[in-house]
Nucleic acid binder design. Structure first.
Lengths: 166, 166
DNA sequence: CGCTAACACGAAATAATATTGCGTCCCTAT
DNA sequence: ATAGGGACGCAATATTATTTCGTGTTAGCG
């Protein structure tokens, strides 16, 4: 899996599709320098290997009525594996929680939340998150404004790194 | 712009494309219950209106060799607008920084970073981020494991909300 | 009311893409 | 050397995307 070696063309494909997931296969083939059929075969292989997990349209949250974005730092009372799993499952069930990551350090989890307005978030916070079993502390920070929001990984860094190894 | 009213079909289109950005237009049209031509016209309109900002393949960072994900909480010395902007610009130039959000509360910014390994991140942290002009404090938390990572917004919440208003 | 203009739809035709089916080349391991 | 596996690209076919155009519906207006 981690040993799945990708050649430069595969990496270019991934980089291009990360930047524009709806590029046509002919355009993609042109950019990576091979003809369409093998290009499509590579894409399918990358999809099946799980290197491409899916494709998503990036929507404008604010325009859609989601005015509020919040990071929540959550501390639990018990960090037993079963309790961690239970909390993670709750997060997966909460639609306002878009991301949930377990952290090292003082805080156990960081959650990225999205809500139509502050009162919706407040309700969620007090009635669901803070009230949830095993939750010891929640510290929230409202996002004032977004300065950068790039999807995925920096392929340039990857290429530099591979070039150095070679 | 926020007054751009979307009908239920538009919202369904957005929801479908957020979930699967590479769905064919015929499939999309079938799912939203109209024929292909008007469906495509709607998609184009949504793109031009900026409601769809782009499309992205979701890649497996770990498989690609990005083993490390870190959240960094950054405090600045000066919060003057010019200084905030300067810091944001730096973030946009750092490829390891994928997201940068300005927060309320004690911390000024939260950064989501991705790196091939810990030492790469450490170098970035000490040589770039902490060393950057106007940076007063940086607290980092390593992501131990990811529990949820959904793109975009919860359309179910939006629909419930609209139903309630009507 | 009746009329008209604006708008969105869908059927059908056309253009472009995706996908399949080979035959060929290249590399590797015998 | 040479057989086998793998990847390529051309050419043919199947699907999709896109344009064109005629129709129905609705809102505004005389």
């Amino acid at each position: 899996m981690a040993g799945t070696r990708l050649d430069p063309i595969d990496r270019k494909i991934l980089a291009e599709l990360q930047a524009d997931g709806r590029m046509t296969n002919v355009e993609l083939a042109k950019r990576v320098g091979i003809s369409a059929p093998p290009c499509l075969r590579r894409v399918r292989t990358l999809e099946e290997a799980g290197l491409i997990r899916g494709y998503h349209a990036e929507v404008d949250a604010r325009e859609l009525g989601f005015e509020v974005q919040v990071f929540a730092m959550v501390g639990l009372q018990s960090q037993a594996e079963a309790d961690l799993n239970a909390f993670e499952k709750r997060c997966r069930d909460w639609p306002l929680v878009r991301e949930c990551h377990m952290l090292n350090g003082e805080v156990d989890f960081i959650l990225k939340c999205v809500a139509p307005d502050l009162s919706t978030f407040q309700s969620f916070l007090t009635e669901q998150l803070t009230a949830a079993e095993n939750v010891a502390s929640v510290k929230t920070s409202l996002v004032i404004r977004g300065a950068k929001d790039e999807p995925g990984v920096p392929f340039d860094v990857l290429e530099e790194r591979l070039a150095r190894q070679a």
